[in-house]
Design a protein around this nucleic acid. Structure first.
Length: 227
DNA sequence: GACCAGGCACATC
DNA sequence: GATGTGCATGGT
């Protein structure tokens, strides 16, 4: 597939998804800070469980960096319990909160002033933040262009034979960065639509024609390689 | 009861 | 550098 064909295919898939599902209105958070918290809590976890955890944090009046940091680990773990892995996520959340408060005064808008490449490196240096979480914070909280790749993205584009089975996170991300307009709304909607496709048709749907832009049937769950 | 979900760090070979 | 494992709840 040459460069033009790849770009055309990526756009074709995007428009087919948008036509099928409509805008997804991501990220489902009321503030940039809430998006950051959600990005960490949703690691390998269903969003419904994360929503419960965030509701608990809100009910406790703690949805701000200072209040969350002031909680002791046991209390925070209890609040985020529904999101699973609550002990490890307590540590990860606090690592991020310290980073945010100490380096940026607890203000996500200040994060968004940092050049994308630099910001990404800084986020990845925080223990508990990997590629997907970093890109989610950059794209959905800071509204800067960094395409979010996840396990669904891998499975869908592997099935479309647009990536190799051995493709790692950055190879997949490069596919989108090279062939799509570097626009935040496009990156935002594309990733959200891929997740929607994955959720909707992962195991429920029969395979369709593999040349159809919406090739719903996914290969079995397999890990996305991260560097 | 098994399997899955919007990962990540760390141990081991 | 690749591969395996622990982390944990809630829905289907």
């Amino acid at each position: 597939m040459n460069r033009l064909e790849t770009a055309e295919r990526l756009h074709q898939i995007y428009h087919a998804l948008l036509k099928q599902f409509g805008p997804q209105h991501w990220w489902p958070g009321e503030s940039p800070f809430e998006v950051c918290v959600g990005a960490i809590l949703t690691q390998n976890t269903n969003w419904q469980n994360v929503a419960k955890a965030i509701a608990n944090i809100k009910a406790a009046g703690c949805l701000n960096p200072q209040a969350l940091l002031a909680l002791d680990d046991a209390a925070l773990a209890q609040l985020i319990r529904p999101s699973g892995y609550f002990n490890i996520k307590t540590k990860r959340l606090k690592q991020f909160l310290r980073f945010l408060v100490e380096d940026y005064g607890g203000d996500v808008r200040a994060l968004a002033q940092v050049p994308v490449a630099v910001l990404r490196e800084k986020l990845l240096a925080v223990k508990g933040i990997g590629c997907e979480t970093a890109d989610s914070i950059i794209l959905y909280a800071c509204e800067l262009p960094s395409f979010v790749v996840d396990a669904y993205t891998y499975r869908i584009f592997l099935r479309h034979e647009m990536i190799e089975e051995t493709a790692d996170y950055h190879e997949i991300q490069d596919l989108f960065h090279r062939h799509l307009e570097k626009e935040v709304p496009l990156y935002n909607e594309y990733h959200a639509l891929l997740v929607r496709l994955g959720k909707e048709f992962c195991l429920k749907s029969k395979p369709r024609c593999e040349h159809c832009p919406l090739y719903f049937f996914l290969p079995p769950r397999s890990p996305l390689r991260t560097p």
